[in-house]
């Protein structure tokens, strides 16, 4: 029997004895089939939780604890965007046609990813992590880079690659950043969906608009981190 039909019958609750046997067998032997049944089994709970107003409230509370950097960066971005707007506006005023350069776009769109990994009170044994992120948060990127590198060597946790990539972008060591971000994008890390956006930023910095566009399109298609901005930026690059 077609597994699709089997799953449908399972969802409808109309499997007969024989089909039930086949179903159980497939769940053990076929990982894809088993996962599909699992998704169905958990959808009721997931959609219920998704519609729970208190849960949404709690998620908001938690988001308020993510580093203050985000607000600061928003202002910074706004100022950069505003100044570019003014410069561009003046250019138009004086009837000078000056296209926005990749570098300008990079400047207006790039902001290094905030520390979302290391939060609040830490135990003494997490001191090294604290020092590394403190350096990152206070724009001491050279130091942060070295420290993240050591932590990655010791622990192998993938997100250190991501923060190293961000530090390298801040240090204008773009080619090295690209290497690390590419490597990071292939990992299973929670932050891995953010790699595409930063790769696009790096290509923009290198004035490689074509590669930037390729990455941005992927970001939009996969609805990854900053998909809306990616769409906006793509329009500016076209």
């Amino acid at each position: 029997m077609d597994p699709k039909v089997l799953i449908e019958k399972y969802i409808e609750g109309t499997l007969n004895k024989e089909e039930k046997k086949t179903f159980e067998k497939l769940r053990v032997e076929d990982e894809v089939f088993d996962r599909l049944a699992w998704v169905h089994d958990n959808m009721a709970q997931v959609t219920k939780e998704e519609n729970d107003p208190v849960r949404n409230m709690i998620e908001e509370f938690e988001s308020e604890h993510t580093p203050k950097l985000q607000t600061a960066f928003t202002w910074k971005k706004l100022l950069v965007a505003a100044s570019i707007f003014i410069v561009f506006g003046l250019a138009v005023l004086y009837n000078v046609t000056r296209p926005v350069s990749a570098d300008d776009l990079y400047e207006s769109y790039f902001e290094s990813y905030p520390n979302v990994v290391h939060v609040t009170v830490r135990g003494e044994n997490e001191k090294e992590v604290s020092i590394a992120f403190e350096a990152y948060e206070t724009d001491r990127y050279e130091e942060a880079l070295t420290r993240f590198g050591e932590l990655y060597k010791d622990r192998g946790t993938a997100f250190y690659l991501f923060y190293m990539g961000n530090a390298l972008l801040e240090l204008d060591r773009t080619e090295e950043a690209i290497e690390l971000l590419k490597e990071f994008s292939t990992t299973e890390d929670n932050l891995a969906d953010k790699a595409g956006w930063y790769l696009a930023m790096a290509y923009l910095k290198m004035n490689d608009k074509e590669s930037a566009k390729v990455e941005l399109k992927k970001v939009v298609e996969e609805k990854a981190f900053n998909a809306t901005k990616a769409k906006e930026l793509l329009a500016e690059l076209e």
Partner: peptide, 11 residues
């Protein structure tokens, strides 16, 4: 957070 970080729970 403080307590479970000392348990080495992934941050």
């Amino acid at each position: 957070f403080g307590f479970f970080q000392s348990w080495h729970v992934d941050e």
